[in-house]
């Protein structure tokens, strides 16, 4: 008996899924080096994706910044360390909360959107129609979207970090009086190189994972309306899981090198 046959069905399916995503990533890089890229479609997708998630990223970013500030405040007050508040909040936002939260929001909004869109194109045979017209559907549909998510998720994270800090500033000033300048110094002054670089680098991987998983699940959607729904659902679940795995790896690597 082969070892694969002794695994439960759902685990087998899951592993096949992961292998498929791996193969897709390889195809993606092969296609990038072959070119030509669909520049117009990349811009189009980037715009759409940024525009779609801007509102959500703004609200979650602002609220998280404020809530973290308000909840940390009493503890720091007990130690008389209130002036550390902006530094603490900004470090946790920029290192961890900003990237991960934004990526999760994008996985929910953008990843499911890609999964559903490509899924419905698949079941209505639009992808096949591209293929039989001699066009490279992988390049047009998948490569463009993955490049767009890889570029836009970092931008959105940067934006979310900024909005969170504004939220934090508002939180500090709800019962206090800290000038913008002082807050700026206290929060960003505490940041060092090793806080920022790994935090930025991992966002590209988050974006890549969201894009490639959304595309893979969409293109491999099974027929029927439930097929499309399942594809969108799997896109969100698997990419959220990948985001945490990438995050964990990023932390380990950072500790190794810095």
């Amino acid at each position: 008996m082969k070892i694969t046959e002794s695994l439960p069905d759902s685990l087998q399916k899951f592993l096949i899924n992961i292998a498929g995503i791996g193969r897709y990533s390889a195809l993606f890089f092969r296609q990038i080096f072959r070119g030509p890229l669909e520049i117009r479609e990349i811009i189009n997708q980037s715009y759409k994706l940024g525009y779609q998630s801007l509102f959500l990223v703004t609200t979650t970013g602002f609220i998280i910044g404020m809530v973290m500030t308000l909840q940390t405040k009493p503890t720091l007050e007990q130690f008389g360390a209130e002036s550390w508040l902006p530094a603490m909040v900004s470090i946790s936002i920029i290192r961890e909360i900003g990237p991960v939260l934004t990526a999760l929001v994008c996985a929910g909004k953008v990843g499911s959107g890609i999964g559903a869109e490509l899924g419905s194109m698949k079941v209505t045979e639009q992808i096949d129609a591209m293929t039989v017209s001699g066009a490279n559907s992988f390049n047009y549909l998948v490569v463009s979207r993955v490049i767009a998510t890889s570029l836009m998720v970092p931008v959105l994270v940067f934006y979310a970090d900024a909005v969170s800090l504004i939220g934090s500033y508002v939180g500090v000033n709800l019962e206090g009086d800290v000038s913008v300048q002082l807050f700026y110094h206290q929060s960003l002054g505490a940041l060092v190189f090793s806080d920022i670089v790994p935090a930025v680098a991992k966002t590209f991987f988050f974006g890549f994972a969201i894009g490639i998983i959304g595309c893979y699940e969409g293109v491999n959607a099974s027929k029927g309306t439930t097929g499309v729904g399942n594809a969108a659902n799997r896109a969100v679940v698997i990419s959220s899981m990948f985001i945490f795995v990438i995050d964990l790896m990023a932390v380990q690597l950072t500790q190794l090198f810095i």
Partner: peptide, 28 residues
């Protein structure tokens, strides 16, 4: 791809690209 361009295929459901206008469909 060269082979496929010689053989036209009309899909059962039409398979028009629904994110594009008719003109863009033709241009694609």
């Amino acid at each position: 791809n060269e082979y496929r361009r010689k053989v036209g295929f009309l899909f059962q459901g039409g398979a028009l690209y629904d994110a594009m206008t008719v003109e863009e469909n033709m241009r694609f």
